[in-house]
Simulated assay, not measured.
Amino acid sequence: MLSTASLAETAALIGDLARASMLAALMDGRALTAAELAQLAGISPQTASGHLAKLTQAGLLSVEKQGRHRYHRLASPSVAHMLEHIMSVSVEREAGSQARGPRVVTGPRDKALRYARTCYDHLAGEIAVAITDSMIAAGHIELTPEAGALTEQGTRFLHDLGIEPEACAQHAAPRRSTRVFCRPCLDWSERRHHIAGTLGAALFQHYLKQGWIRRPEGTRSVTVTPAGQQAFARLFGVRP
């Protein structure tokens, strides 16, 4: 059972600016070294190591050793889900404090990030929300703020794409067989839901393998290729 002390401890860990910066940097699902995270957070490697040890001990991060290097990543999709919701709440709070000022653009000010980015292991941003809307309208998925489900039509659609729904867990995250298959994730720039869970991860991997999207190094933004623009327009009616 969750205790208020545990809640406060988790909030305090995330509330530190340096730790928040490092957690946000890991939201693209990749693993980074302490030195890389220190540079992103603007702190010394020694200070970063202390922060990372606390985050790992609290279960927010996991560490993988490869040779002499230690790579840090978010411990689970639930951690990414929590961070995405905190980002959404933070944006709403910022917008509320400026309600009488100029129109506030939700989410990242970078247009590329707003359009398409990674949210841990699935696609987020304007294009992800548009794809989700299209799949709902076509009867491929059913989505509520609390849960999601793939329909029979959706199963046939995935088969036609070349994705086997039964193998989504292994296809997207072989070590996370207990993950929810399909769930909504509140998009913090669009303020609407996109597809997450193993289905969201499997779709994201399919887009990558087909060459429809690319992941530039050092950013959460995702580039939609010309082939991807054509595919997304044909399959989902999404225009760039």
Results as ranks from 00 to 15, higher is better:
211 G>A: 11
146 E>T: 15
232 F>I: 10
212 W>G: 04
176 R>D: 01
233 A>K: 15
162 G>N: 09
67 G>S: 05
38 A>N: 05
207 Y>W: 15
228 G>W: 05
123 L>R: 13
136 I>M: 04
2 L>F: 12
197 G>A: 04
27 M>E: 03
152 E>Q: 10
202 A>P: 02
55 L>Y: 07
148 G>S: 14
109 R>H: 11
139 G>F: 05
61 L>N: 00
177 S>P: 08
211 G>I: 11
170 Q>T: 05
11 A>D: 11
42 G>L: 07
11 A>W: 08
24 A>W: 07
192 R>T: 11
219 T>D: 06
26 L>F: 03
97 S>T: 12
132 T>Q: 11
68 R>A: 00
53 A>R: 09
17 L>F: 13
64 E>P: 03
182 C>V: 14
177 S>L: 14
35 A>E: 10
14 I>S: 09
142 E>C: 12
23 L>Q: 03
92 E>Y: 04
12 A>K: 12
61 L>Y: 00
201 A>H: 03
35 A>W: 01
96 G>Q: 08
190 E>M: 14
170 Q>G: 01
171 H>A: 01
151 T>Y: 10
103 R>F: 09
92 E>M: 10
71 Y>A: 06
151 T>W: 08
54 K>G: 12
56 T>Q: 07
209 K>F: 11
22 M>F: 06
119 C>L: 09
14 I>Q: 14
99 A>P: 10
87 M>C: 14
218 G>I: 02
235 L>E: 09
48 A>Q: 02
16 D>C: 05
57 Q>T: 14
106 T>F: 05
237 G>H: 07
159 H>A: 15
25 A>Y: 00
9 E>W: 14
118 T>V: 13
96 G>L: 07
201 A>W: 00
75 A>E: 09
199 L>V: 09
222 V>I: 15
193 H>Y: 14
141 I>C: 09
230 Q>K: 11
61 L>Q: 01
84 E>P: 04
69 H>P: 00
127 I>R: 06
27 M>K: 01
239 R>Y: 08
168 C>P: 04
1 M>T: 12
65 K>H: 00
133 D>Q: 13
205 Q>F: 00
227 A>T: 05
37 L>T: 01
231 A>S: 12
167 A>F: 12
198 T>G: 04
72 H>Q: 05
124 A>C: 15
153 Q>E: 07
130 A>E: 04
197 G>E: 02
183 R>N: 11
240 P>T: 09
237 G>D: 06
185 C>M: 15
111 K>C: 05
228 G>N: 08
207 Y>Q: 07
160 D>E: 11
205 Q>S: 01
88 S>I: 03
46 Q>L: 10
117 R>D: 01
